[in-house]
Design a protein around this nucleic acid. Structure first.
Lengths: 121, 121
DNA sequence: GTGTGTGCAAATGATTTGCATATAA
DNA sequence: TTATATGCAAATCATTTGCACACAC
């Protein structure tokens, strides 16, 4: 694992928000790291393949990346903001219904975020 | 509602599969309709905004469009294939937990499709 | 030393946009 | 008529790729 791979992973693991490739690129560049955007993408793709991080694709917005700890997401239908939330784990029921031992899933709940709710009212 | 809007909606409603903008464009063009790809996109976007159809964004694949009847999806992690499936409706629990009357959500279960399962074994 | 990561610039591919024309209410 | 949809081509934007160079093991 290289210098940049480590930095990128650390950023994602330690971040409270959901970072896009560009967020990561800009953060590292601000730290005077001479990293290229393509390198960020390369690393993110590799880590997703290896199952070290998770990609969050939301329609209309650039992909964001997330840690693996089990949780679900609220997605703001206005601004695309993602918020972590934890609903009951349904892996067991789903797996049972599909006739397999283990099942992975992605649950997104559409929910107007605080900021957009304010703007509206 | 225009001629093409009707055709596009009908295609989506009657289709057993999940069509992409290009699928729809090619289908209509094969029927000798002089439709433009941009028109397909325009109509799909409009219908999504109006809440008449639903957009399915799967990372790495072009968007596909779906009818509104409540159901969930299996997503093949190898080929991106979408399959309809119906798990228990969780709107009520989710809404309760969020403190609202109604909640919309999107549930995707990652599950190797038949074809990819064959190829593997 | 040899494979793999990196930087850069150019390519890609899905989707959007601008604008002039055509169509629907 | 008067707004809105359409066709076309060009533009956009996130992401990927090719290639030469630089590390890491």
């Amino acid at each position: 694992m290289t210098k940049y791979a480590k930095m990128i992973l650390e950023l994602i693991e330690s971040s409270g928000t959901h970072l896009s490739a560009e967020d990561i690129f800009l953060t590292l560049r601000d730290r005077q790291e001479g990293i290229a955007l393509a390198t960020v993408y390369n690393n993110l793709n590799r880590m997703c393949d290896e199952g070290v991080i998770r990609r969050l694709t939301v329609d209309g917005y650039p992909d964001r990346y997330d840690k693996l700890v089990r949780h679900d997401h609220l997605v703001c239908p206005k601004c695309g903001k993602l918020t972590d939330v934890r609903f009951a784990d349904m892996s067991a029921e789903i797996a049972k219904q599909l006739g397999v031992e283990k099942a992975e899933y992605d649950l997104r709940v559409f929910f107007l975020c605080d900021e957009c709710a304010k703007k509206k009212g």
